[in-house]
Every structure is written in structure tokens, then in C-alpha cells.
């Protein structure tokens, strides 16, 4: 009996099953689902994460000039759905897990994305990086039809309301016609 106790004690000394945690920091394995963080260079502010977030931890608020995306760690369930859904690869789960804070307001992360103003009426209608990224995405397709990118810039720089105004309609129709003709040629 005593022999067994001694053996177990020696084994635990040689190969302890616990660590001195706060002194000896714990490093999670690769692929650990910790606190999510935005990539400031990549995020375009489309809000797909806010729409899909299962517990509703990600919200956004539109002010006059910026869209404020906020991720509340208190509500986050660290499921990684935002990382999975993001079309721009702009939010990632990090290895951070020590998220205790004194003030509730500190338990959040977020990103402010500037809005793009309609060049005709000055109304905000789309986050600026999203517009830029959309333009980049269609650039290849436009090049296929031999249409320069600059021809599109004015058309997508006006808000939906101005785009259908009498002033802008002819340009819009001309562009559509060019697209159709280019497609027919191809």
C-alpha cells in the first residue's frame, strides 16, 4: 500500500500532470479557436460576418461617415463561423484565450470602415473599400471584353438612386449595350 503511494508520488514528480499556469504560459495547439480579430488591410466592411454570426456577437452600426463593425467577446462562442464565411479572408481566430477584463466595454474588438459618398448627391451608400474591391474583382472580366476600367468608375460611384436619374441613364444604357455587344462578339 505504502509502496504504491510512494511510486505514484515519484511518478507525478517526474512527469507532472499539471503545469504552473500563470507563471508558465499555456500555448494552445495550432488551429486553436481563440478570440477573433479583424485584418485591417483586408476588411471591406461588407457585414457578412454580422449577418451569419450564430450568437449575434458581431453587430454593425452605420454612422455618417463610417461603418462600425463590433465583435463582443462576451457574446462570442468562438465557433469560427465568421472566419469560414468571410469572402475577403479578413477575420481570423487567434490563439488568444485570456480575455478577462475589468470593464465590460473593453471586451470587444472592431473595425471602422469609411463610407463612400455618391459623387452626384453626396449620400453614403457603400463602404469605400468594398467598392474598390468590387472594382478589382470585375477588372478581369472587363479586360476580357476590352472595356477599360475607367469607364465603369463613374457608373458605380453614384448611389442607386442617382444611377437611375435622367442625367445618368444614357451613360448607363450605353455601357450595358457595350457589354452585350462585347459578349456577342466573344
Amino acid at each position: 500500500m505504502k509502496k504504491n503511494i510512494l511510486l505514484e508520488a515519484l511518478r507525478s514528480l517526474a512527469n507532472p500532470s499539471t503545469t504552473k499556469y500563470p507563471k508558465q504560459p499555456y500555448v494552445p495547439t495550432d488551429g486553436y479557436k481563440g478570440a477573433a480579430e479583424y485584418d485591417k488591410d483586408k476588411c471591406v466592411g461588407c457585414g457578412a460576418c454580422a449577418q451569419e454570426c450564430p450568437p449575434g456577437a458581431i453587430t454593425y452600426e452605420d454612422t455618417e461617415s463610417t461603418r462600425k463593425l463590433r465583435l463582443n467577446y462576451g457574446l462570442c462562442s468562438f465557433c469560427g463561423r465568421c472566419e469560414e464565411i468571410c469572402p475577403w479572408d479578413a477575420i481570423h481566430l487567434t490563439k488568444k484565450f485570456e480575455l478577462a477584463v475589468y470593464d465590460r466595454k473593453d471586451a470587444e474588438t472592431g473595425i471602422d470602415v469609411p463610407f463612400f459618398e455618391c459623387i452626384d448627391c453626396g449620400r453614403i451608400f457603400l463602404p469605400e473599400p468594398q467598392m474598390r474591391a468590387s472594382l478589382e474583382r470585375v477588372e478581369k472580366t472587363l479586360a476580357k471584353y476590352k472595356i477599360p476600367k475607367e469607364d465603369l468608375v463613374h457608373l458605380i460611384s453614384v448611389c442607386p438612386r442617382c444611377a437611375f436619374s435622367v442625367k445618368n441613364m444614357p451613360e448607363r444604357r450605353m455601357f450595358m449595350r457595350r457589354l452585350v455587344e462585347a459578349k456577342a462578339d466573344a
Binding site: 494552445p28 495547439t29 488551429g31 486553436y32 479557436k33 465557433c79 469560427g80 481566430l93
Partner: peptide, 12 residues
């Protein structure tokens, strides 16, 4: 479980 799924409980 942590190695495969990235979490210890609520594996997802």
C-alpha cells in the same frame, strides 16, 4: 479534441 477541433468542449 483540442488538436482536431481547436476547442476542448463545444467542438464545432
Amino acid at each position: 479534441l483540442e488538436a482536431i477541433c481547436g476547442k476542448r468542449v463545444n467542438l464545432g
